[in-house]
């Protein structure tokens, strides 16, 4: 389940990413009431089996929901994981925005990403970056991290150009290209190929650089900002500046 919007007194419009029908929007009636039969199951991050009733209007109606995995409970207990998961949902929503167009690969990627996030299999930031890189690749925007993105000359290359789609050789290098550390390109390769041993062993500085590159890459090619990316909390502790000491009001 990707997103919910309030509708009227007690209903919600729910956006699902389904296995067989891609993105589907439907009305879940009465789910904001405490006595709703399936209100607790209709929450973002949930992996559910859902039955729709196709009415005459544009939106289907949710008639039955069975929970497979309630990822929302584990994810929302940790603020960092919640902001990370929200970014993953927004990216999935953006990349599958043609309603009822099957997107099985995107569905499987998101499910795996949310499962890894809820079980804390890896650092939240790494899961987000791996998901972002792979979902963009599935959508047709695979980041080049070895061969030149423009002419295909085998790498490794040192320059990185967003507009070209990744690393570029000295001949193709445009003005203003970045020069990421070789370890960052290695981490990008590891995240794209699920080499978690390499990814988990990466240092904080490399992760920060890769996070910046992947976020910029996604926003450049999606041609608009992702609202949740700026709110992703990659720190374990909230900055101390947020908590004025007692007595200093």
């Amino acid at each position: 389940m990707l997103r919910t919007h309030k509708l009227g007194e007690a209903d919600r419009i729910v956006t699902f990413l389904t296995h067989h029908f891609g993105q589907v929007r439907a009305v879940a009636k009465g789910v904001r009431k405490t006595n709703s039969r399936f209100g607790a199951r209709v929450e973002p991050f949930a992996h559910v089996a859902v039955q729709f009733h196709q009415g005459r209007g544009n939106l289907d109606t949710v008639t039955q929901v069975i929970t497979h995995d309630a990822f929302g409970g584990d994810i929302s207990r940790d603020y960092g994981r919640y902001t990370t998961g929200s970014a993953m949902l927004e990216i999935a929503e953006r990349l599958t925005n043609h309603e009822r167009e099957p997107a099985v690969d995107q569905y499987m990627l998101l499910l795996g990403g949310l499962r890894a996030l809820s079980k804390q299999e890896h650092a939240s930031g790494l899961i987000l970056d791996a998901y972002l890189l792979r979902s963009m690749a599935v959508a047709g925007w695979a980041m080049a991290f070895d061969d030149c993105a423009k002419c295909g000359v085998p790498g490794p290359h040192g320059a990185f150009a967003l507009s070209a789609g990744g690393v570029v050789c000295p001949n193709c290098r445009p003005a203003g290209a970045a020069n990421p550390a070789p370890q960052s390109l290695e981490l990008i390769g590891a995240l794209l190929s699920s080499d978690w041993a390499v990814a988990d062993a990466s240092d904080e500085r490399t992760r920060r650089e890769v996070a910046g590159l992947t976020a910029a890459f996604a926003q450049y090619h999606l041609e608009s900002g992702l609202r949740s990316l700026r709110l992703v909390d990659r720190t374990e502790q909230v900055q101390e500046a947020d908590t004025p000491p007692r007595g200093e009001s």
């Binding site: 929450e43 973002p44 991050f45 929302g72 409970g73 994810i75 929302s76 207990r77 940790d78 603020y79 919640y82 902001t83 909230v238």
Partner: peptide
């Protein structure tokens, strides 16, 4: 008691 509320409480 929903995902947004729980996350806000956690924060």
């Amino acid at each position: 008691p929903n995902v947004e509320g729980e996350a806000t409480a956690s924060y």
